[in-house]
Write a protein that binds this DNA or RNA. Structure first.
Length: 700
DNA sequence: GAGCACTGC
């Protein structure tokens, strides 16, 4: 600890902090900034007037750094030094240094917008530009003005974008603290390879034959490529002449690997054996593998992006940024000088790579963030003018406003409504928060809580999809409930209730091939949501899961109705002649029900006329993932509302005031559907759909 | 009848 570079800069740092409200600190890996900055400020008396809060983008980082600092100060974790992450608050009244995830700080600022308990806020790893960090940066800029005399903000960043952050904070000073990385020699390819997989393979074998001992870290974009490369590497290593080079083992490393497989990279290798670690981006920041001396970087990453004009998510392979390329290279220099092989020419790196990664705020749906900011009641409520370090597109902000309007979180002028205020308190996407609000009215809150919690964990519920587990999964899918033909939301509800009836037995999860970790997470989320709902309602609500009685069709009906209101912005109508759907929003999209859905066609081979969907994903085709069957009479008021939508008004612009200014939502009786002002084709199609709907009903 | 980079409240 004595020789951490940052300690030599203590005087300089303190002097700068003393005279400036905001300071940017560029600290490379190994500088000790995460553990030492807070201690320096503590030593210099900054904890006398409040807490020093340090945000981290990841939970594990918040916990492990807090633990380290408490050890260095010789205090018990949770007393002078503590941490706060979701589901776990280990702080006390005595806490002076508090590590927390950026999401937790954001939640805290909802109840205390001035963050008065803090004397210093350090936004650590700000260069990662998580959605939450970006919002915090904007909020800090405002806070500094309001609390100029008694709040200090420190922002740590990577070399390449320190200037930008400084400019954002009125040219605040930048301090650079060197890291403790060893030099890494960079090699470029002459050309871009036609196959990055083959090229990685060849480079890896070259290293194995020519270079001295040291592990090799290879970056791939996803599980499929990792599995292919692992098996090819194993084949080639086996075919090398006996005794021509040292032994080697090949280890895959990615997020959907079960934890016990992930930790294999942390156990030390057998002597005289080289390890090849074939990893996704997880090895870029989240996990640090010791012993790596060689890095192979093909320059690609898989990134999820949101298209605000279609409302659709896609997962694309994109070129990494210079910051990412350097982060990857740095992985070779942690224990001794290393080498990084870039499978692209230096010219491509210089001219084509972006300096920094596109921040998350520019590739996500912003409905939740906009609602959050609206609920903070900032004096200038025009959300389109909020001061972001990197502004999201106006299209994206308008999309968010439109969504919030359709689910009654804001009115037609863009002002937050009381229901929206309550929604902002829930750590959920606005659609699900709205569903909970509505479900509480219909007496099915308990079921809605379960569905919301299940959807929050959905991706972690099922184990990886490697070929060996594939068949088993199909097999057990038969044993899981089927949603009673109301769709995936109802199935998720039924799954959780069965687990509840099994007394949360982990063997039940295993028998049904559900990830224990995922199901436990659902239980935690559900508990948290229940508590928040009780707090909002200021009374005790019935939130117990169904205790084994058979759920009636009426229960499902109420829940589906609540989902219809909550997902008013995610509604689709079936085509007349086939089972394709058309989304009902501003720009209609042609989509299909995802093949993994439990929803089945009826006797005539048709799917239901109206569904709501949890998510639109563009893979081989545009799909709706997780759908729920809705009824026409619930959908009609939403269509009415869609007609009145005026984005100009929502965003506080000077748009025309619509002729139809009533904001009342008409609850139309089933037999008297009058649709006015819709284009003719829409009207006749709705008419046709309605006839079919009534005919089906009559048949029953 | 298709396919899941990584986080987080």
């Amino acid at each position: 600890m004595e020789n951490l570079p940052i300690l030599q800069f203590e005087e300089k740092i303190m002097e700068t902090v003393e005279h400036n409200p905001v300071v940017v600190i560029i600290g490379e890996t190994g500088s000790g900034k995460s553990t030492q900055l807070s201690q320096i400020l503590h030593r210099r008396g900054y904890t006398n007037s409040g807490i020093v809060g340090v945000t981290q983008p990841r939970r594990v980082a918040a916990v492990s750094v807090a633990r380290r600092v408490s050890q260095e100060l010789g205090v018990r974790l949770g007393e002078e030094v503590g941490y706060a992450i979701r589901f776990e608050d280990r702080t006390s009244e005595r806490t002076k240094i508090k590590y927390l995830t950026d999401g937790v700080l954001l939640r805290e600022s909802l109840s205390d917008p001035e963050l008065n308990q803090y004397s210093v806020i350090i936004l650590d790893e700000a260069h990662e530009r998580s959605l939450n960090t970006d919002i915090l940066l904007g909020l800090m800029k405002r806070l500094i003005k309001e609390r100029a005399s008694n709040l200090k903000v420190l922002i740590t960043s990577a070399t390449l974008d320190g200037e930008k952050v400084s400019k954002f904070f009125s040219d605040c000073p930048i301090l650079t603290v060197p890291g403790k990385l060893y030099p890494v020699e960079i090699f470029y390819s002459k050309e871009r390879p036609t196959s990055y997989l083959e090229s990685s393979l060849k480079t890896a074998i070259d290293i194995h034959i020519r270079e001295p001992e040291g592990d090799v870290l290879i970056f791939m974009t996803g599980q499929d490529d990792i599995e292919k490369l692992v098996s090819k590497l194993e084949d080639q290593i086996r075919s090398l002449e006996e005794g021509s080079c040292m032994d080697a083992i090949v280890l895959p490393l990615h997020g959907s690997l079960p934890p016990e497989m992930q930790v294999r990279v942390f156990s030390s290798p057998p002597p005289n054996c080289r390890r090849f670690i074939v990893a996704t981006n997880i090895a870029e920041t989240s996990l640090t593998v010791d012993g790596v001396v060689y890095v192979i970087d093909a320059g690609y990453v898989k990134q999820r992006q949101y298209n605000p004009s279609t409302g659709m998510y896609s997962l694309d392979v994109v070129q990494i940024s210079k910051v990412q390329a350097n982060q990857r290279a740095g992985r070779a220099g942690r224990t001794r000088p290393g080498k990084c092989y870039r499978l692209y020419p230096s010219r491509v790196y210089q001219d084509e790579f972006h300096d920094v990664t596109v921040p998350e705020i520019q590739r996500s749906s912003l409905a939740g963030s906009v609602l959050y900011l609206k609920s903070m009641d900032l004096p200038d409520i025009d959300i389109l003018k909020f001061d972001f370090l990197d502004k999201p597109s106006s299209e994206s902000l308008e999309d968010a406003l439109k969504q919030l309007y359709l689910i009654d979180a804001i009115d037609e002028n863009g002002s937050i409504l009381s229901i929206g205020r309550k929604m902002a308190e829930l750590p959920l996407e606005p659609s699900l928060s709205r569903t909970l609000m509505e479900a509480n009215e219909y007496g099915c809150l308990s079921q809605a809580l379960t569905v919301a919690a299940m959807l929050s964990a959905e991706t972690t519920l099922l184990p990886g999809r490697s070929r060996s587990t594939e068949k088993k999964r199909k097999h057990t899918a038969l044993e899981l409930p089927d949603g009673s033909n109301w769709g995936d939301h109802i199935q998720l509800l039924q799954i959780y209730e069965l687990w509840d009836q099994a007394d949360y037995d982990i063997n039940w999860c295993k028998d049904h091939k559900l990830q224990v970790r995922g199901m436990k997470f659902v239980r935690d989320v559900r508990r948290q949501l229940s508590q928040i709902m009780q707090k909002i309602a200021k009374e005790s609500l019935d939130v117990r899961p169904n205790d084994g009685r058979k759920e009636s069709q009426q229960d499902y009906k109420n829940l589906r109705k609540a989902l219809c209101v909550g997902y008013a912005n995610q509604l689709a109508e079936r085509m007349i002649h086939h089972n394709g759907y058309r989304t009902l929003g501003f720009k209609p999209q042609l989509v299909q029900v995802h093949p993994s859905s439990v929803l089945k066609t009826d006797d005539e081979g048709k799917l239901p006329i109206y569904v709501v969907y949890h998510e639109l994903v563009a893979t081989t085709r545009p799909y709706m993932r997780n759908v729920c069957v809705e009824e026409m009479r619930w959908v009609m008021p939403i269509l009415k509302k869609l007609e009145k939508l005026n984005v100009n008004k929502l965003s506080g612009g000077s748009g025309h005031i619509g002729e139809d200014t009533e904001s009342e939502i008409l609850d139309l009786p089933e037999k008297e559907i009058t649709v006015t002002g819709v284009p003719d084709d829409r009207e006749s199609r709705i008419q046709a759909a309605r006839d079919r709907f009534l005919a089906r009903k009559a048949k029953k």
